Lab assay of single mutants.
Amino acid sequence: PEEVRRLVEELYRKGVSPEQVKKILKKQGIDEREIEKVLRRIG
């Protein structure tokens, strides 16, 4: 979803590592598979 992409990109631009991005967003209840999809697209 758009909102997940925005959150991931925001953290990524701040220099947060992909592993940390995953941890942070998982705590917020976001599906890990969604996060990984976005990270793959960015990375």
Rank of each mutant, 00 (worst) to 15 (best):
V38C: 05
E3P: 07
K27Q: 11
R13A: 08
V21D: 00
Q28I: 13
E36Y: 03
L39W: 01
K27A: 13
E9A: 08
I35W: 02
P1N: 12
I30F: 14
K23S: 14
E3R: 08
K14V: 06
E36H: 03
L39T: 03
V16F: 14
R33A: 13
G43V: 15
R41D: 15
V8L: 03
V16D: 03
L11D: 00
R41E: 15
R33E: 14
E3N: 10
V38H: 07
E3K: 09
L25R: 00
R40Y: 07
K27H: 10
E2I: 11
E32Y: 02
Q28V: 10
K26W: 06
L25T: 00
V4S: 02
E9T: 11
V16R: 12
R40C: 04
P1D: 11
L25W: 00
E36K: 04
E32N: 04
I42L: 15
R33H: 12
I30V: 08
E32A: 07
L39R: 01
K37L: 13
E19W: 10
E34V: 13
V16E: 06
E10T: 10
R13S: 09
V4A: 03
E2F: 13
E19G: 10
K22H: 08
P1T: 12
V16S: 07
E32S: 06
V38K: 01
L7Q: 08
G29W: 02
R13T: 07
Q28K: 12
K37S: 07
K27F: 11
I24T: 07
D31S: 09
K37W: 05
R13L: 07
L11K: 00
E19Y: 11
E3Q: 10
E3L: 12
E2R: 09
R40L: 11
Q28G: 05
I24R: 06
K22R: 15
V16L: 09
Q20A: 12
K22Q: 05
G43K: 11
L11R: 00
Y12V: 12
V8K: 00
V16W: 14
V4C: 04
L25H: 00
L11E: 01
R41Q: 15
R40S: 08
L7V: 06
Q20E: 10
